[in-house]
């Protein structure tokens, strides 16, 4: 089934920030799903900017219940659809807080039970809706309002939780990462996921101009840099095995970091070589693990 790029199922008039990665990502997701879908969203930026009563931006059936139960609600939707012999696909679209942290119990349960649905995490790497607090998806050294950089802090002290591997370990038949910076890749992976039977997980890198500190016009440029530096590996997994990887001519991580206020403390007032090296090591490990490099770096 070909993707109709002109299909608009996410409407104008929503209240996302100008240049929002989530809004772009969600719009692309719906182009890939088409109309025959039911979307479940947890609480978060997406839910809030798209559905202040009565001004819904959704042109497909959509349900929001709570912050942490989207996967459980989707389980019920999926079972009810099958019972009624209906054809709609079930897709969750939610943020990283709802996915990595507060909703992980429901998410794990739903994947273990093997429901036929696709869970799409729009990952902007912190709790943006409540004001940029760190989540389990926040990368190492990112300054957030609850992991601020300071005289004794370089920001978030822990690396990002490896959610795709966790979901693959549940036996998910299809797990993929992608980015709003690569619209065709994103749409193709969503289409693959919804057409794969069983619980599928797609994690979308969704740069947040407000939370990360960059101009809204740079959302795609920043997203590309995350991929090109190896900090956001783009890959697909089928039945637990990595089957496809986006190869890159890798750039140094600081090209990505220095564009964003959340990493500014690594460069000003003085350059923190040791910390930048640690982040480079994360990218190097990603490159080695997933075989990201087009050719070995000289």
């Amino acid at each position: 089934m070909a993707i109709d790029k002109t299909l608009e199922l996410f409407d104008c008039g929503h209240r996302a920030c100008a240049g929002c990665g989530h809004a772009l990502g969600t719009r692309l997701v719906l182009k890939a799903t088409g109309r025959d879908v039911i979307v479940v969203s947890p609480t978060g930026c997406l839910e809030v900017f798209s559905t202040p009563y009565p001004e819904t931006a959704w042109r497909v059936p959509w349900i929001h219940s709570l912050f942490e139960n989207a996967a459980a609600v989707a389980s019920g939707v999926e079972v009810a659809l099958k019972r009624q012999k209906r054809s709609e696909k079930v897709v969750v679209v939610g943020g990283d807080g709802a996915t990595f942290d507060i909703g992980v119990l429901c998410l794990s349960g739903a994947f273990e039970r093997g429901h036929d649905f696709t869970y799409i995490c729009m990952d902007n790497e912190a709790y943006m809706n409540t004001g940029i607090q760190r989540s389990g998806a926040t990368p190492y050294d990112a300054s957030t309002t609850t992991s601020p950089a300071g005289a004794r802090s370089f920001g978030n002290r822990r690396p990002k939780k490896d959610m795709p591997q966790i979901m693959a370990a549940h036996g998910a038949p299809y797990v993929a990462t992608t980015s709003v910076a690569y619209p065709m890749d994103l749409m193709q992976k969503v289409e693959r996921a919804i057409n794969t039977e069983g619980p599928c997980y797609v994690q979308v890198h969704s740069p947040c101009c407000t939370g990360w500190g960059f101009e809204g016009s740079q959302t795609i440029a920043i997203g590309k840099l995350a991929v090109e530096t190896g900090l956001w590996p783009v890959f697909e997994m089928n039945n637990g095995q990595v089957t496809k990887v986006k190869k890159i001519m890798r750039k140094p991580v600081e090209e990505y970091l220095k564009q964003q206020k959340r990493f500014r403390h690594l460069f000003k007032p003085i350059r923190q070589e040791a910390e930048i090296a640690k982040i480079q090591a994360i990218a190097d490990a990603n490159a080695s693990r997933y075989g990201l490099d087009l050719k070995p770096r000289k």
Binding site: I63, N69, V73, G76, L81, R83
Partner: peptide, 11 residues
């Protein structure tokens, strides 16, 4: 939560 989703789907 699953009951809520199923109920909203018409069951």
């Amino acid at each position: 939560s699953a009951c809520l989703g199923a109920s909203a789907t018409g069951v």
